[in-house]
């Protein structure tokens, strides 16, 4: 760890805030991508099943 001297709090806070914001963005992006992909797969499966079902 480098000696950050009297500015240690400022530097480490800047790095900490950036990592938190970037991590939230990446996690939110991946979580939403998976959720939407799963819902779409379920909806497409439902539609396929409805088409296969005999009418009347």
């Amino acid at each position: 760890m480098p000696d950050l001297g009297k500015y240690a709090v400022s530097v480490l806070s800047a790095y900490g805030a950036t990592f938190v914001l970037l991590a939230c963005l990446v996690i939110w992006t991946i979580w939403r991508a998976r959720r939407v992909a799963r819902r779409l797969a379920e909806a497409e499966l439902d539609m396929t099943n409805q088409r296969k079902r005999p009418r009347g």
């Binding site: 500015y7 400022s10 530097v11 800047a14 950036t18 970037l22």
Partner: peptide, 17 residues
């Protein structure tokens, strides 16, 4: 917007000292 927020927050931490 996250990039803008990072620029503003890190700028504040840099500007203060």
């Amino acid at each position: 917007i996250v990039m803008t927020l990072i620029a503003l927050v890190t700028g504040a931490f840099w500007g203060q000292p």
